[in-house]
């Protein structure tokens, strides 16, 4: 199939970007979206032009490195699928395909389609961990966890931190990401000791990074390649109110040292 790509090209974080038309000829419908871009880049290199820069790593939907807003939808038109797992059979020959980077003040473009996602790292570092002294592993059954709790925590833990939620949100809010990280640990006994500190610090960091606020439009849930539910956002809201009242002010922020 032949496609007309409209690709965001931007030299670096300082320069202004623009959309550029690139023709993709003879694309195999069996190739993935990133493989299609690989072929396009080979051709661009052959013509002495600069290839399109994009993020990727595992290419099997588990690392969270790939991104791309394809025709307005983060990770493209296929529900619950990362861009690396998106196949070209989802497109029709002759189609115009718009490819843009995640757009948020807190996710600035570094080059073309690559954005700086260290704001997500800083949110995670603010509280998305449990502190424990390591030693020999304890008996697996020493800490009983009800199956429904384990399942709920797992539903949140599948978050790969790709940033699609913030990219899809009309307000550039990464609430689904933050909520998944808070929720996953709030449900499990291992997360209890730092429960209040964690949610306050992570929500505070989200604000500091300059992300927007949730308005419950659920674009994030529709875009999430891991199909994480906005139920976790409600849980994070509950966790936040609880902690805002319970946590003594001076203790906040002593978490990770």
């Amino acid at each position: 199939m032949d496609l007309t790509l409209h690709v965001w090209r931007q030299k670096n974080s300082k320069s202004d970007g623009h959309m550029e038309i690139v023709e993709a000829k003879d694309v195999s419908e069996h190739s993935s979206f990133l493989e299609m871009l690989d072929v396009v880049n080979e051709n661009l290199l052959g013509q002495g032009k600069e290839p399109i820069a994009f993020d990727h790593d595992c290419r099997e939907g588990i690392c969270g490195a790939c991104s791309l807003v394809i025709n307005g939808e983060p990770h493209g038109p296929e529900y619950g699928t990362t861009t690396c797992q998106l196949h070209m059979r989802s497109f029709k020959s002759g189609q115009h395909v718009y490819i843009e980077p995640w757009r948020a003040r807190a996710l600035p473009v570094l080059k073309d389609l690559i954005v700086d996602r260290t704001s997500f790292d800083r949110i995670q570092q603010a509280g998305g961990f449990v502190s424990s002294n390591t030693g020999s592993p304890q008996d697996a059954n020493a800490l009983p966890i009800p199956k429904p709790d384990a399942d709920k925590a797992f539903d949140a833990a599948v978050c790969i931190g790709c940033g699609a939620c913030a990219a899809a949100c009309k307000n550039a809010s990464p609430m689904l990401f933050v909520a998944a990280k808070v929720s996953q640990l709030a449900i499990l006994p291992q997360g209890k000791p730092e429960r209040e500190r964690r949610v306050l610090a992570m929500v505070d960091q989200m604000k500091k990074e300059g992300f927007g606020n949730c308005t419950n439009q659920y674009e994030c849930e529709a875009a999430c390649p891991k199909e994480i539910s906005v139920e976790h956002i409600a849980r994070m809201n509950r966790e936040y109110f609880r902690a805002a009242i319970l946590e003594e002010p001076e203790k906040q922020g002593h978490g990770g040292d």
Partner: peptide, 17 residues
């Protein structure tokens, strides 16, 4: 919320809102 996305999408889709 407006300030959080200074650069708009050229092609923006609405899935759920």
């Amino acid at each position: 919320n407006k300030a959080a996305r200074p650069q708009k999408y050229v092609n923006e889709a609405t899935m759920e809102a």
